[in-house]
Design a protein around this nucleic acid. Structure first.
Length: 335
DNA sequence: TTGTGTTTTACGACCTCC
DNA sequence: GGAGGTCGTAAAACACAA
């Protein structure tokens, strides 16, 4: 496993409109929020690798010069510029590069997926802005194989996890797999130990081990849409008949949190979309938002208390005595 | 391992708005 | 009247110190 990749080139973008993955695995932009509310930061990282064709899901721009993403595809060439414009159709463009690219949120979340196309790769467009080579999101067929990389302890780990769909029919559309580094640590810990040689090996034991690992990965992806049921259902409780509460998956939480950062109150259409995308009922989405707002209120109350305490400390700095500022009545009177 | 405090789902009670 | 809001709370899940 090569952990000696060259320095990572990271570009922070503070004005990227986020792409949203629907339950049908098409990428579509948010349309019911303002552009300003979509601001998020991305880190784009690359390092030299085998020349590969990459698929990039973008929203083509013809009406604005807004540039929100620049990916240098090799040190000796010019930059490829992808432009995302909210509210327009999502397209797939392809580039040939000698770089392996990943796009990750600066909070460890992968928002945009760049898949190497399995050989033989389709001919690349003459330029990345050549819209004649773009596919619509419904035409997009994710590759039969893709490669996943992770970033740990300031090193990129080559993490070859070649995944092949269960079905052998290559003509059927394969759902775009959700990759998130906001995932159980055990997933990555186990992944780091996977050696590519296992899958390349002619040895039956190594091959079956590889198959097993692939199955585990596949199960993890599936599990991200399946909330964990309670270990001990509460019998006779007045709550849900057969379950007291379930634990949402990392992906469900992640998408809900993302939605919450966009708006503290979820709209009816967004609720319906999230419901189908995350396999949660609209009631669960609604209650999650209610609970999340409650948490926010609790946190801001706590912050306010800390602020007033600090303010109080500074105003009392000259005083030899704290005047009993720890007492609840003091705070009550102060606030 | 265990005790304890915190966070996360889920709900009831009650309120407002349309 | 129904939908969805807050508030308070139950209980599972989780984190973490001892």
């Amino acid at each position: 496993m090569n952990t000696n990749y060259p320095s990572i080139i990271s570009v922070d973008h503070e004005s990227n409109p986020r792409l949203y993955e629907t339950s049908y695995n098409n990428y579509s932009p948010y349309t019911d929020y303002t552009t300003a509310s979509k601001l998020e930061a991305f880190d784009y990282n690359y390092w030299p690798g085998t020349p590969t064709t990459h698929n990039i899901l973008t929203i083509p721009s013809t009406t604005t010069n807004q540039i929100i993403d620049q990916i240098q595809i090799s040190p000796s060439t010019n930059q490829t510029i992808e432009t995302l414009v909210p509210g327009s159709t999502v397209h797939l463009s392809q580039i040939n590069s000698t770089a392996t690219i990943s796009a990750t949120h600066h909070h460890h979340h992968i928002h945009q997926h760049l898949y190497p196309v399995p050989p033989p790769p389709p001919p690349p467009p003459s330029s990345s802005n050549d819209s004649s080579n773009w596919l619509t999101s419904t035409e997009y067929q994710s590759p039969n194989n893709y490669r996943h990389y992770t970033y740990t302890n300031n090193n990129f780990y080559d993490q070859p996890q070649w995944t092949t769909p269960a079905s052998s029919s290559s003509s059927s559309l394969v759902p775009i797999k959700f990759e998130s580094s906001y995932s159980p640590s055990s997933y990555f810990e186990s992944s780091h130990n996977i050696e590519q040689s296992l899958c390349d090996s002619k040895e039956e034991s190594s091959y079956s081990k590889c198959q097993e690992q692939q199955q585990q990965q596949s199960n993890w992806f599936k599990s991200q849409l399946t909330p964990t049921p309670p270990k001990n259902p509460a019998n006779g409780k007045t709550r849900t008949r057969d379950k007291y509460r379930i634990v949402y998956t990392d992906r469900q939480r992640y998408e809900l949190e993302n939605e919450f950062t966009l708006s503290k109150y979820i709209s009816i259409p967004r609720k319906a979309a999230l419901s189908s995308a995350l396999a949660l009922s609209e009631r669960q989405i609604k209650i999650w938002f209610q609970n999340r707002r409650a948490k926010e209120r609790k946190l801001s109350k706590k912050r306010q208390e800390i602020c007033s305490r600090q303010l109080n400390n500074s105003t009392d700095a000259d005083s030899p005595s704290d005047g009993g500022f720890e007492s609840p009545t003091y705070y009550q009177n102060y606030v």
